[in-house]
Design a protein around this nucleic acid. Structure first.
Lengths: 207, 207, 207, 207
DNA sequence: CATGAATGAGTCTTCATTCAT
DNA sequence: GATGAATGAAGACTCATTCAT
């Protein structure tokens, strides 16, 4: 008696589910490429399914519409960012983790520079974009606030705004990366840290 | 010949030209509002002409097509930016103009925050956007390079990258402004200057 | 000085409006033909605009969507029915107007047999269809009730149901007409009146 | 040969055939419900298989395509109508079977009101619908013609048309039933018989 | 110059049908 | 035989652009 696939329910169902998952992942991957290149509004469903090498109808088996795709792409990207950064920053002492946080943010945003570009050029889904920026700023603000609580940083620093500025700088770098290969994230992080350490001497600021 | 307003050529032609100019300005102003709200792709010609209170056909008397409108809007915005910033920065000694440049950049970008948002969310016309970013970075890079030439700034600073980072920080602020009223540009500039002066103490950077 | 069309606002605007109206009427007329032949669901917008000899986009200048077209078609048809029948029946003494009412109903439904077919085969817009049936039944019921009030008709007749049955018979005839040319409405009305006068003798009803 | 249920051919094949039959019946029953609710064009194969609780592919094991399903549904419905009505009317003397025929038609159409609605709102398969109407009219026409042959009904009655009118009245009632519960078929039949017996007195017809 | 009705190419989206498991 | 993921042709609807007035 031969062992056929329908004798054992599990594997058969698993294979089906795996195939489904793979198609969905193909679509997300293709969408990431296409949206990065063309922008959300200009990209068509046909562009995406062509890039994923599936039929147009297949798209709608996995996403309700174009908006749902973008939502999924951004939410999943945000979640990966959160995990990657969290894994690096969590074990560090808050008050002294700014360089590490900046390096982690740069590395993570470099890895997801496509998603960052899509988030900032799509126009819609501002809440997800905002949550992303808040995620980044959150790490920095925690570090600054903790340092202020320990008295090592003066109160003249507006912690939320400074955090926003630094994260803004990094995000802008990520958008730059979506067009240019250089500089690598480590170099970018070094320069940011160098700048924040007081790299620009007081001589430049005599007005 | 009938007695009409075109008996006297000069004034009539002027009035004609003035009316034409006014219509064109209305369209550009309407486009700025509508594109800021909806984004380039989502905004329709009808949206723009409705906001400008003219007929759809009138649009095509002033702009070849939708792309030409965006091109004009961005080029004119870029030119205004260049003039406003240049007027402030030109008379200053390069090596010591960083705070003034930052304040001028913040003020000018705040005034044109709609255009900045349109430039960064339209997806097309990357060359104009790049030229805008280069305009900003140019002022900063000149100042840093001049300071390095005078020996007041060390060579460990990557002048183009630092300039890019600082301008990126400011641009990111401008995109934030397109959604939020605060903080005012002067406050934003102060914080940036404070940060760059070495506002974050070495204590935060002991790794 | 020549008399050009834009010197006199009225006629120019009128011409514009007339042209618009004509296009709309073309579309409604084309829709009546196409929907009768293909049915509401099977008919495409392209079928209708092709029949009307206008571009597809023109359809959407006049109707929000396919549903709005059907709604308009049925409402306007219902209104014409109401006017045509009312004009005939209104001046008659209620209690003796049944033959006249039946002739008027037959004539009006014959004239609008396409609309009747569309209403009864479209599946949607049941409320308009119901209102149409109630319109027909209303005239008959008024006549029967008036006759009962004068004592010339016995109370064993269920006036609403009888009215519904007779109108149903006529409506079914109208649907028949949408496929066949004969019999003409006058003949149809004569037969109905003949039947209702007691054309089938008691001999047939000895059970 | 492995020990499985197909060792004994007969019962196994029977069980197979029974299961097949049951699935087919499920699909037809589900189709009847779904098509009644949504109409033929609007109903999807997925709607039907979901209602039947089978996979979409299963549908095509039992019907060549969507049209074949409708064809089967209508043909089987028509056959049942024919059998039910025939069983009642066949043993009666033609010339005196009009009340019985009307009662049988009302009862049968009430039982199959879903099918009637589907037939009249599907747009396609007009030949089956026509054959259905001819089935009904046939019984009535035979009765009227037989009565005319016996001299108990005058020749002023156009037998085919009168038969068509009466069947049309009943069919219209059946479509009404697909939306409303009342009146019951017996009541409907009584009123029709009452009307045809001369229920509307001559007083109403003095023009 | 100004207008807005008309156009039709281009998109999104649905769904009947197929086929590998 | 049963399943449901995948397919792509077909249809609704939008909107940049034109042109007669």
């Amino acid at each position: 008696m031969s062992i056929t696939s329908d004798q054992v329910g599990g594997p058969a169902l698993d294979r089906q589910a795996r195939r489904r998952s793979r198609t969905r992942a193909c679509l997300l991957e293709a969408a990431r490429h296409v949206l990065t290149r063309l922008g959300y509004q200009a990209a068509t469903i046909a562009d995406i399914t062509r890039a994923a090498d599936v039929g147009v109808g297949t798209f709608y088996l996995h996403f309700r519409d174009k908006d749902a795709l973008l939502h999924t792409l951004l939410e999943e990207g945000l979640e990966e960012l959160r995990e990657e950064i969290g894994a690096v920053v969590a074990p560090l002492p808050l008050a002294h983790s700014i360089p590490a946080a900046i390096r982690a943010l740069c590395a993570a945003l470099y890895a997801h520079r496509d998603i960052v570009r899509i988030a900032y050029t799509s126009g819609s889904f501002i809440d997800i974009t905002r949550r992303g920026q808040e995620l980044l700023a959150g790490y920095l603000q925690q570090a600054i606030t903790a340092a202020q609580a320990q008295g090592v940083v003066g109160e003249t620093i507006d912690a939320p705004l400074a955090a926003g500025l630094i994260s803004g700088m990094i995000i802008q770098g990520a958008m730059w990366w979506s067009d240019h290969p250089a500089p690598p994230p480590a170099h970018m992080a070094d320069q940011i840290i160098h700048l924040l350490r007081g790299g620009l001497p007081p001589a430049l600021f005599t007005e």
